[in-house]
């Protein structure tokens, strides 16, 4: 049985923000993460605010400038199957199709996927860890097979669980947020919070703020996007390692690139060393080898997850060879 909470289902964004703007209120989109968090007692929630009666937050449409606007309540299944997303941003469609299992994709939303709580077993378990308000990250000296190798600063070693955030960051997407102080639009790249900045928060959303839409810019000419996820079992699992690519190609030459890793860091992790290794270069064996070596630059693996170094090297190599094969 879940702990008790009151339940509200506002019909306007104004009421939604009002209901969310109190301590202990939590937004319910698809509920796939929230219900689990409530069941595990990792959040103290006394009011659940359902976003399910807000009609403006559903659906995917093309914008006047050739980009896309995705309502935050659009399900992961809808994103993965949308012909518009598949045509313009295959990387996002692939990311969405790799999320959890079919039932959870049918229920979970794109907005909720960006706001997930971490999956660290200490955080989800009965440990009062640093992120939950305690004093220690238990994973750092404990079991951290699936944990971060970048960006953790040895403070909190979670990996960000989202498969849609890496392609969205790679594609230069933005989120529209509404809150007590009005609306703001920020890049998805700036949505998530590093442990060094605030170990108790996953996103920069303030109390009362909720994501309403995701904006995708018009895809540049010759954009090639993809998402690849490596996991311990083929069905329903989080990423051990993953990579979202957004490459602007000119023949076999990479003009510009954005490379974002999943399963790597507490936030979707942009790999500038890989981008530097491939941008303005022909995608040949030499470039790919350099890129594979570059992906682990600056990594700070833990004793139990050293394997991720080789995994990421192999992943980058395979993914870039896939791109180069397509060019032939």
């Amino acid at each position: 049985m879940l702990p008790q909470f009151s339940y509200v289902r506002p019909e306007t964004l104004k009421d939604t923000v009002k209901h969310l703007n109190v301590p202990g209120a939590a937004a319910h989109a698809g509920g796939t993460d929230l219900i689990g968090c409530l069941r595990d007692g990792i959040m103290q929630v006394n009011k659940v605010v359902s976003l399910n009666a807000l009609p403006d937050l559903h659906g995917i449409r093309e914008t006047a400038d050739g980009g896309l606007l995705i309502g935050a309540m659009t399900t992961i299944t809808e994103v993965s199957e949308s012909p518009l997303v598949r045509r313009k941003y295959p990387g996002l469609a692939q990311g969405a199709s790799e999320v959890a299992g079919p039932q959870l994709r049918n229920q979970g939303t794109i907005g909720g996927n960006l706001c997930q709580k971490p999956r660290c077993w200490y955080y989800r378990g009965e440990f009062n860890c640093l992120r939950k308000g305690g004093d220690n990250c238990y994973a750092l000296d404990g079991e951290h097979l699936f944990h971060a190798i970048f960006g953790h600063d040895r403070i909190c070693v979670i990996t960000h669980p989202s498969d849609t955030a890496p392609p969205l960051v790679a594609l230069g997407a933005k989120v529209r947020i509404i809150g007590p102080e009005g609306k703001r639009t920020i890049p998805v790249a700036n949505l998530h919070v590093s442990p060094a900045d605030n170990v108790r928060a996953e996103t920069v959303r303030k109390q009362g703020e909720v994501i309403t839409h995701i904006e995708l810019p018009r895809p540049p000419e010759n954009l090639r996007s993809s998402y690849r996820k490596v996991r311990a079992r083929r069905s329903w699992d989080f990423a051990l390692a993953g990579v979202a690519l957004a490459l602007e190609m000119d023949g076999d030459r990479v003009n510009k690139s954005r490379v974002v890793l999943s399963g790597a860091a507490p936030v979707p992790w942009r790999s500038q060393p890989v981008e530097n290794a491939i941008s303005n270069r022909r995608l040949n064996a030499e470039t790919i080898e350099k890129a594979a070596r570059a992906v682990v630059e600056g990594a700070d693996p833990l004793p139990g997850n050293m394997y991720k170094l080789d995994l990421f090297k192999g992943l980058i190599e395979e993914e870039l060879y896939t791109v180069s094969r397509e060019l032939r």
């Binding site: 008790q4 909470f5 009151s6 339940y7 509200v8 289902r9 506002p10 019909e11 009421d15 006394n46 359902s50 399910n52 009666a53 807000l54 009609p55 559903h58 659906g59 995917i60 449409r61 093309e62 309540m73 659009t74 399900t75 809808e78 994103v79 199957e81 949308s82 012909p83 518009l84």
Partner: peptide, 18 residues
């Protein structure tokens, strides 16, 4: 706008005490 995917909006507002 060209809608390609729509999910059904839910039923109307309801406030329930815990």
């Amino acid at each position: 706008a060209a809608m390609v995917a729509e999910s059904k909006p839910g039923p109307p507002e309801k406030i329930l005490d815990a």
